[in-house]
C-alpha cells in the first residue's frame, strides 16, 4: 500500500507556479528523499501535503485518502512534519511540557503525563528537561523536542524538512541514528527534504531529484552510492557533494 501518492501536482503561491506536474508514490514504511537546490520547490511539496500551501491542482493521497486543501484534524494524527530550524520552530515562551501537551489537548487525549514521558524517552531526552524553555536547551536537544512533538500523536508518516542542516556533524549523527531507530521501532514512513546527499545515502531507500519545480529523476539509493545517474543535473549535484562520477 502506498503511504503518499502525488499525481500531477502543480502548486501555486498566488499566481506563481512553484511545481510542475510532480508525480511519485511512497510505499508504506519507505524512506524517501526529495533532493534539489533552494528554490526548487521541494519544501513546498511538503507544505502542500500538510495543507500549508493550499493552492494546488492535481491530487495528493495520504494512506489512500485524498487530501483537502487545508489543515485537517484527522490527517494531523497520521502525518506530522519536522521543520528545518529547531531555533525557529519552538515557541520561546513555552516549556517542553507545554509544547508536547498541546497536540494532545487538541486531540482530546487524556493520558498526557505518561505519553509525554514515553515520547521524551523514545527520542532520548532526559526527563529533567521537561520543564525547560527552548533557550535552556542545545540545538540537538531542541531538535529532539521537535521530533517528540511530531511523534506524540503517534503518526505513521513523518515529513522531514532538512531536519539536520542546522546541526553540527556529531549532533547530526545522533539525530540521524534517532530517525533510523524510530523508523525501525514504529514502522514509520519518511519523506525527507534535503540537499545533503550523504544523509540520503544513510537514511533513505529512494530519492527524487527536483529542479526548478520539475521532477528530474527518481532513483534508488544504490544508484546514489555508486554515483550512477542518468540525468546531467543529478550528476552535477553528486559532483558538488564531493562524489566522483565513474
Amino acid at each position: 500500500m502506498n503511504a503518499i501518492e502525488l499525481n500531477e501536482l502543480d502548486i501555486f503561491y498566488g499566481d506563481t507556479q512553484i511545481t510542475d506536474n510532480i508525480s511519485f508514490d511512497i510505499k508504506q514504511g519507505e524512506s524517501f528523499a526529495l533532493v534539489g537546490e533552494s528554490g526548487s520547490g521541494k519544501s513546498t511539496i511538503l507544505k502542500a501535503i500538510m495543507g500549508l500551501a493550499p493552492k494546488w491542482n492535481g491530487s495528493i493521497k495520504v494512506n489512500n485518502v485524498a487530501r483537502s486543501h487545508g489543515i485537517d484534524y484527522d490527517f494531523a494524527a497520521q502525518c506530522q512534519m519536522v521543520f528545518q530550524d529547531p531555533y525557529g520552530s519552538l515557541h520561546p515562551r513555552k516549556t517542553v511540557d507545554a509544547t508536547l501537551s498541546e497536540p494532545l489537548t487538541i486531540h482530546r487525549i487524556s493520558d498526557q503525563n505518561e505519553r509525554i514521558e514515553q515520547v521524551m524517552q523514545s527520542v532520548g531526552l532526559d526527563l529533567s528537561f521537561r520543564f525547560r524553555y527552548p533557550h535552556q536547551l542545545s540545538g540537538g536537544q531542541r531538535q529532539r523536542v521537535v521530533i517528540a512533538r511530531a511523534l506524540i500523536l503517534e503518526p505513521k508518516i513523518l515529513l522531514l524538512d532538512e531536519p539536520t542542516s542546522a546541526l553540527d556533524v556529531s549532533v547530526q549523527a545522533e539525530i540521524l541514528n534517532l530517525f533510523k531507530k524510530l523508523r525501525k521501532e514504529r514502522g514509520l514512513t519518511y519523506l525527507m527534504v534535503t540537499h545533503n546527499l550523504p544523509v540520503v545515502s544513510f537514511l533513505c531507500d529512494r530519492l527524487a531529484v527536483i529542479k526548478a519545480g520539475k521532477l528530474v529523476e527518481v532513483t534508488g539509493v544504490e544508484q546514489l552510492r555508486q554515483g550512477n545517474f542518468k540525468h546531467a543535473y543529478t550528476q552535477e549535484l553528486y559532483a558538488a557533494s564531493g562524489g566522483v562520477i565513474s
Binding site: 540521524l176 546527499l197 550523504p198 552510492r225
Partner: peptide, 26 residues
Amino acid sequence: RGLLAAIPSLNETRDELPTLNRLQKE
C-alpha cells in the same frame, strides 16, 4: 577521528553512525 566518523559518506552502508557519546543529561 570521532568527528570524521560521524559524517555520513556518499556511499553509506553503516547501520548506525558513531557519535561522540554525549549524555543527553544536564
